[in-house]
Nucleic acid binder design. Structure first.
Lengths: 376, 376
DNA sequence: TCCGTCGATGGCAGCGCTACCATCGGATTG
DNA sequence: CAATCCGATGGTAGCGCTGCCATCGACGGA
């Protein structure tokens, strides 16, 4: 008659009673069947099915001081890049017992700190966090997290534990060098919101131009105070890029520097906007104006003309982060603390000044240059 | 000397001891400070800070037979639509105690069933699931879930509990009617992977054309066996669209039906591909060929020419789903079981046959038609 | 034959928190 | 002034599971 506080669902004890075994044997049969004899295992399986038993993960997590939750922190859900990373993470998780809990930091370090604190209350099995620019409190939490921590999408000499990513500086530098090589001289840099990774790209762009002796700060809307853009204009709340932004930013840049002959866009979405702006102005790409993007999203190849971009391996980063996490959870050694997955410079018609004006630009296969990172 | 199984972190009992109060009072102060006197509350807060106490959510969930996890099932992470829905969900969650756990069903009903079963092990606070075409087992689980369940992104007379979405059939029918109105007569329908919502759109398209007496099954690559596309060609593994797919599918459709004068694309990404294909062929949009998309993603407005689309309120759907969930958790009544958020037909240059060929098509503001759903 | 070992199984005692009920002093009411 | 009520607080007993250790029988070597 005592009021039980259960929700009426069968527990491991019910299964044990029905199967005529001890509760702990049921527990073992569920977690690692090899520990239990065939006969009992069958009995238990039957009882589980008969009762429709569903394990309570909260109880399991409490008893073992460890949950099955993998916390993932990304700065944006809207950007395709992180959608690809997440897809890699989900593919890496597969049908394991692990569960994903995603936090959206919105590029806000305080929000990241708050989300991290929340995640830790779950006693997560592991953590995957984007980037290396955590604030001091977040960094401390990560270091004392008592679970594997993987940083992704950037590189650092000093990761919390393990980092998987690539050099945004080197990638942007390589693409800028390509633009120089094919003959562009007044190369602009177009960016919306600047985050730490964008800044790495900007510095790569600047370095390539300085090496060639043709850097001109008037050619980037992000020069000087690198964070200024974030606070400027009508996009102060937008932490993501749109093609409309690309069009407007390119127009602005042209106003201040009409002799610009190419633009390297901080991401493909801006590049798409730049292409539309050129089309609206009746400019020929690549002959009148060159355009390059960053990330090589689907539409870059399909655009007309097809657009050059830096291919980044987002899926791989997410996937490999999970694989590394699982390795660590399985107790396997992992001495490679810093993993550079590299990038590819994909050269297409939008930066090919020698291209013949053809009807379908896709006919010619794009040239690729493999840079950094190991082969995979 | 007995071996404790803790991980060494302070517990609620430690806080209680330091503050000189009972454990339960600490628990109350943490969950609802108004239940505790000011004096004790301050003492407790001080003790919490001093010890760096972090509540263990697994223990809380076990004791209260209810966790703070909201399970969300989406069919795709790559499609922008669901990224927008997720953003709405995160914005709706805000800084509440609730946490999001996203499952990616990949448009696979069995996978959905599996993920649902996994989620239920957490005793979730609520569930948000995409669509209405769950299999029987999933449906049963949802009905017996013992927590609020919100279905989203579609409409149904018979939701599990509450549904928030819009009619894909009506939206597609309205856009098709627009294409007819402006004078197109051989209107194609372009689709990649067909899911239940795509099928709704196709049926709306067919109905509008049949009403006008100009339906021709040769004009859609999805006619006949609606699922056939999924298994066909090189995209059998792709459950998402790319602009390259749009280009190729449009070419195929032209091959079989060269007189086609417009195309309604199942999503904007395909529409972008269609535009690129027209540009590569030197066709004028909208005069030679009309293009309309679905969802009205960012780039539709920025394209050159700007492209018509059906604006869907994905953010709103996600956001309102969470708000409804929170209401139910707070015990507030909610009698509106079926919520239609409607859609807008956004008419732009890509379907404006009367448009003058201008340099910048964006100059003219787009016309919008508001359809279905209440004002918000 | 005896003892040590090992695999299979079970009992017990928590894991850290909260539901439930009891207690207690002060305010309210007739 | 006694009866009643109510807000604040605390004690107890779980929530459902697993870590630790004990037990037991089979087996092999000395």
């Amino acid at each position: 008659m005592s009021k039980r506080r259960t929700d009426g669902r069968p527990t491991i004890a019910d299964v044990a009673a029905l199967a005529g075994v001890g509760a702990i044997t049921v527990s073992r049969a569920l977690r690692d069947p090899s520990l239990v004899s065939d006969m009992l295992r069958e009995k238990i399986d039957t009882a589980v099915r008969e009762l429709g038993y569903v394990p309570n993960l909260n109880a399991r997590a409490l008893a073992s001081t460890r949950s099955d939750v993998v916390g993932v922190l990304v700065p944006s859900l809207t950007q395709h890049i992180f959608a690809d990373v997440l897809r890699g993470i989900y593919d890496g998780i597969g049908h394991t017992r692990l569960h994903i809990q995603v936090g959206n930091t919105r590029y806000d370090l305080d929000e990241e700190e708050r989300l991290l604190a929340e995640l830790l209350r779950h006693k997560p099995a592991g953590l995957i966090v984007s980037g290396i620019d955590q604030n001091a409190a977040s960094r401390r939490m990560l270091e004392k997290a008592n679970c594997p921590v993987i940083q992704i999408m950037d590189l650092s000499d000093n990761p919390v534990n393990k980092i998987i990513g690539f050099s945004h500086h080197n990638a942007a530098k390589a693409m800028t060098q390509h633009l120089i090589e094919v003959g562009y001289r007044r190369i602009g840099f177009l960016s919306g919101w600047m985050n730490s990774r964008s800044k790495g790209r900007l510095s790569g762009y600047v370095e390539a131009l300085e090496d060639a002796g043709i850097f001109d700060p008037r050619l980037t809307n992000a020069a000087g105070d690198l964070g200024a853009l974030a606070l400027r204009g009508s996009w102060d709340k937008h932490q993501y890029s749109t093609p409309a932004m690309g069009r407007e930013l390119l127009s602005e840049l042209w106003n201040s520097e009409p002799r610009m002959d190419a633009v390297f866009c901080n991401n493909d979405v801006l590049a798409l906007g730049a292409l539309f702006e050129c089309q609206a102005r009746g400019l020929s790409v690549p002959n009148d104006f060159g355009i390059a993007g960053f990330n090589d999203e689907d539409f870059m190849e399909a655009a007309s003309p097809a657009m050059s971009s830096v291919r980044t391996h987002r899926w791989t980063v997410g996937h490999d982060a999970v694989i590394a996490l699982r390795r660590q959870l399985d107790g396997e050694p992992d001495d490679e603390r810093i993993v550079d997955v590299g990038f590819d410079i994909v050269k297409r018609a939008s930066t090919d000044r020698r291209a013949q004006p053809v009807r379908d630009d896709d006919a010619a296969a794009p040239q690729q240059t493999r840079t950094a990172g190991d082969d995979r």
